[in-house]
């Protein structure tokens, strides 16, 4: 997306003026956002706040994919839905809200779940992917497709009183490339899923609204900076800042404590490694392909349900 392909019209100038005057943003950053396409996978506790700030900031094309319908038990945290939209597909409910906030972006609804069969076709239409899903099988699928299609990925997760956030695959490098400074993928950082018995969803284990909300807003913040500053593009000149925290990205963890106020351990920044030589998806001898994924190889469901002892966290 070339940031200088057109001018801003008066409506856009007024609507985006308060972010365009922020140092480092400017008209150039705004045009980059307008010319960008973001896919938000999941329209729940993460996707709602994330999509509101993505839409508000003026990202030009916003795809949202989710097969679920709005339920009353979503509404304490999924702030883009509404009681009178219970029963609607979440993507339709959320886009209805986003259209009211900002009608300028093009919204593309995908009212079904991401699958190994449809993932590549959908993700290929976008510049950046936000993982706002709620299960490991989809998380590994998203990352694998992002590696193969070379899309940056902003990933977050949350449950109960904990949240996590990381920027992956940014800037994307060709699969198998081991040039120093390649950014890791989801599998480089999280090699294996936990045994299924140790996993619970927000539906089963619950989540505090502001915890998942913080992570969703933070995801939007990372996506906006990547697109507005073109951090997903290879550095244009040797004078580009060398340290963007991307090659060895930071895993942000947020710990919310119902018994005490915000403190020194509420946020922790953890330094992760770079791309792994032996990574199943992006590493040297990876055999992962788009065709393979479409035809069931790897089997994500089985990968995330390897039998283990019977535990329950």
């Amino acid at each position: 997306a070339n940031g200088c392909s057109r001018r801003l019209d008066d409506d856009e100038f007024e609507r985006y003026s308060r972010q365009m005057i922020v140092p480092g943003m400017g008209k150039e950053g705004q045009l980059r956002l307008i010319n960008s396409r973001v896919l938000i996978i999941g329209a729940g506790g993460l996707g709602c706040p994330a999509s509101m700030y993505i839409a508000g900031a003026g990202v030009g094309t916003i795809g949202i994919i989710d097969g679920d319908v709005v339920e009353i038990s979503n509404l304490h945290r999924q702030i883009g839905h509404a009681t009178f939209r219970i029963g609607l597909k979440k993507v339709d409910s959320l886009i209805q809200h986003l259209m009211g906030l900002n009608h300028l972006p093009k919204y593309i609804p995908y009212p079904f779940h991401l699958t190994p069969q449809n993932a590549a076709d959908i993700i290929s239409q976008y510049d950046l992917v936000m993982d706002c899903t709620d299960n490991p099988a989809t998380r590994y699928l998203i990352s694998d497709i992002c590696v193969l299609l070379r899309k940056p990925l902003v990933s977050a997760a949350s449950i109960q009183k904990s949240g996590q956030l990381i920027v992956l695959n940014c800037p994307p490098a060709p699969q198998g490339s081991l040039t120093p400074g390649c950014a890791p993928c989801y599998r480089c950082c999280f090699k294996k899923p936990p045994p299924p018995s140790s996993m619970v969803s927000c539906g089963e284990a619950g989540v505090m609204g502001p915890v998942v909300g913080m992570m969703g807003v933070a995801q939007a913040g990372e996506a906006i900076k990547i697109l507005a500053s073109a951090l997903h593009m290879p550095p244009q000149s040797p004078t580009d800042p060398p340290e963007r925290n991307l090659h060895q990205p930071t895993l942000l963890i947020y710990t919310y404590d119902l018994e005490s106020a915000v403190g020194p351990y509420s946020f922790r920044a953890l330094k992760m490694g770079g791309r792994k030589k032996n990574c199943f998806a992006c590493g040297e001898n990876s055999t992962l392909t788009l065709e393979g994924i479409k035809t069931g190889n790897p089997d994500y469901v089985q990968f995330c349900s390897a039998p283990t002892s019977n535990v329950n966290l």
């Binding site: 729940g44 490991p136 977050a156 989540v207 963890i253 953890l270």
Partner: peptide, 10 residues
């Protein structure tokens, strides 16, 4: 030394 469980909810 920090042990942190990776999360998958959203």
């Amino acid at each position: 030394i920090l042990f942190v469980s990776t999360l998958h909810g959203g």
